[in-house]
Simulated assay, not measured.
Amino acid sequence: MRVLLTGGSGFIAAHCVDYLLQRGHSVVFTVRSDEKGQKILKNHPDQPKDKLSYVIVGDIAKEDAFDEAVKSDPPFEGVLHTASPFHFNVTDPKKDLLDPAIIGTTGILKAVKKSAPTVKRIVITSSFASILNATTHEKTYSERNWNPITEEEAVQNPANAYRASKTFAERAAWDFVEKEKPNFDIATICPPLVLGPVVHYLNSLDTINTSNERVRNMIQGRLKESGLPATGVFIWVDVRDVALAHVKALEVPEAGGKRFFITAGHYSNADIADIIKKDFPDLADKLPSELKSDKPADVYGIDNSRSKEVLGLKYRELKDTVDDTVKSLLEVGA
């Protein structure tokens, strides 16, 4: 299958490239600069241009950002849309988070409908943020749940803006398909905290993804005195499982028209720190001496059965993910 992958230098997307190539697909990825595009190509030196290439898409929040990117010879059959902002350095929640997420998502759908009639499926990176109800947690979360956040709440603070950006963007995608009846169907991937090895050629310790910052801070001794921060969302998943879920959702016919809640299970920051202490004794003195879990006894349940049944996912264990994450951070100089 010929696949367009948006946001090619992102944490999840970089792993998607690996799985797509391993599974025999040809890939065109979007990046904001030639420099990033060349870095990715250099790290797949054995791939010919017809198997791996890139196009520049400057600002995904522009209405027509993807109009040219979706045109290809030979034409695309699938799209993985992973490009969306995730950070909390926000000055204007609407401009910095909401608009790029929503317009970026509807923009790619419009562009494909208009100029890429051969595309049969678009897989969109959403988030547990679009499932979660932060005020009154569900007893058990699954794809049936939607975050009830309102537009008024969305602009109150960066955390709300991020959750709303994911919720509104995913809803906008489902609405688009329902109203426009395009030539393709969609599937959405909703992971919580994504941990896992960083892609060394794209990262320095200052530019790692937001989710892995907690592991970096632990092994650099930044939390030794202050203690572990609050865990936040008590569920996690390995980036490689998320990437494979994207690719499988493109390949498996039954995945069309479905949301997928992609999670391996529960954790706390103390669980991560415990694994680091046991498996990397040299780093033990960088961590707080007392490690106390903040995970509540009655933490919400999860139902990830659809991802196992439809996509055939087998989730990695936290220990393996933490070990691989730490090793990858040490490689980039932690």
Score class of each variant (00 low, 15 high):
Asp294His: 02
Glu180Gly: 07
Arg240Glu: 08
Val299Glu: 15
Leu202Phe: 06
Leu205Ala: 12
Ala297Asn: 07
Ser226Asn: 02
Lys258Glu: 11
Pro288Ile: 04
Gln220Cys: 12
Glu251Thr: 10
Leu291Arg: 03
Gly232His: 09
Leu250Gly: 02
Lys258Arg: 14
Arg171Gln: 15
Thr207Asp: 11
Leu283Glu: 12
Glu254Tyr: 05
Gly257Tyr: 09
Gly221Ala: 14
Gly265Asp: 12
Ser289Thr: 07
Val247Arg: 11
Arg216Val: 06
Asp274Tyr: 09
Pro197Cys: 11
His246Phe: 04
Thr167Ser: 15
Phe184Ala: 11
Lys278Ile: 06
Lys278Tyr: 04
Trp174Asn: 00
Lys286Phe: 03
Ala187Val: 02
Glu178Ile: 06
Ala255Arg: 07
Val177Ser: 06
Val199Asp: 07
Val215Gln: 14
Asp185His: 09
Asp298Arg: 08
Ala249Tyr: 08
Asp238Tyr: 09
Leu244Ala: 07
Ala284Ile: 02
Ile235Glu: 12
Asp279Pro: 03
Ala270Leu: 08
Lys258Pro: 01
Gly227Leu: 03
Lys224Ile: 05
His200Gly: 08
Ala169Leu: 03
His200Phe: 05
Ile272Trp: 11
Asp282Pro: 01
Val194Gln: 12
Arg216Phe: 14
Ala245Asn: 01
Ala245Gly: 15
His266Lys: 15
Lys181Pro: 03
Lys277Ala: 12
Glu254Gly: 02
His246Ala: 00
Ser204Arg: 12
Tyr267Arg: 02
Ala172Asn: 06
Ala230Tyr: 01
Ile208Phe: 14
Val177Glu: 06
Val194Leu: 13
Phe260Asp: 01
Phe260Thr: 00
Tyr267Gly: 05
Phe168Arg: 01
Ile275Glu: 12
Pro281Gln: 11
Val247Ser: 13
Gly221Ser: 13
